[in-house]
Amino acid sequence: MFEARLVSSSTFKKILDAVKDLLNEASFDCSESGIQLQAMDNSHVSLVSLMLRSDGFDKYRCDRSLTMGMNLANMAKIFKCANNDDTVTIKAQDDADTVTFMFEAKKQEKISDYEMKLMNLDQEHLGIPETDFSCVIRMPSPEFARICRDLSQFGESIVISCTKEGVKFSTGGDIGTANVKIAQTNNFDKEEESVTIEMQEPVTLTFACQYLNSFTKATPLAPQVQLSMSDNVPLVVEYQIPDLGHLRFYLAPKIED
């Protein structure tokens, strides 16, 4: 028996919104420790990794580990039927071929349930090596979204360059070039608005705008985003889901031909 209850279904709505550009379907691996999802986008350029810890749920029970393959568009249709402040309970029997989502209104005046067929997905699981990153940047997530959106008007790639002085986002194309520089802030009382840079070595890497823009669909999940970079390894874009877990996107860099 698997059962996971979360007071606010809006968290799931936000997660689905954040990944649906990249993934059509994905396996949710449920175990005692929580719910995990790892999946590559169709072109194998990026990887989505979601972790929702069992202790972050209001109720969590997982007698036996199970993997639930789900079509994310259909899952999104179901969550559209829930109000943001509805409580959601996800239930499945051991070895079941369906999963049930139950939504309860705050005052229990409305209870609805939706049963969805599960899919057998043959998804390969990738080992992600532990990396000490050369640069770790934390900045307001809406600011990162804004920069990606603004720069993608001018080019297909964004060069992210991190030094002690700050982070520079650059692009160029037929129109010309664009540069946005972000400096570390000294604003300690407003953590959500702060920019912090931990740098061991300066790093400059190039990434496809299309993917960065997709990742920023996760902005409503967290006020801050963390960008981790090292030479010649994928960028990690991480959104912490308060008290529940994280959503990470890995993106392979572009390299000179």
Binding site: M40, S43, H44, V45, S46, L47, E124, H125, L126, G127, I128, P129, S157, T206, A208, V233, P234, Y250, L251, A252, P253, K254, I255, E256, D257
Partner: peptide, 14 residues
């Protein structure tokens, strides 16, 4: 010109 690498160039199957 730059070339897009695949995530599989970095992360291998478990």
């Amino acid at each position: 010109h730059s070339k897009q690498k695949s995530i599989l160039d970095y992360f291998k199957s478990d």
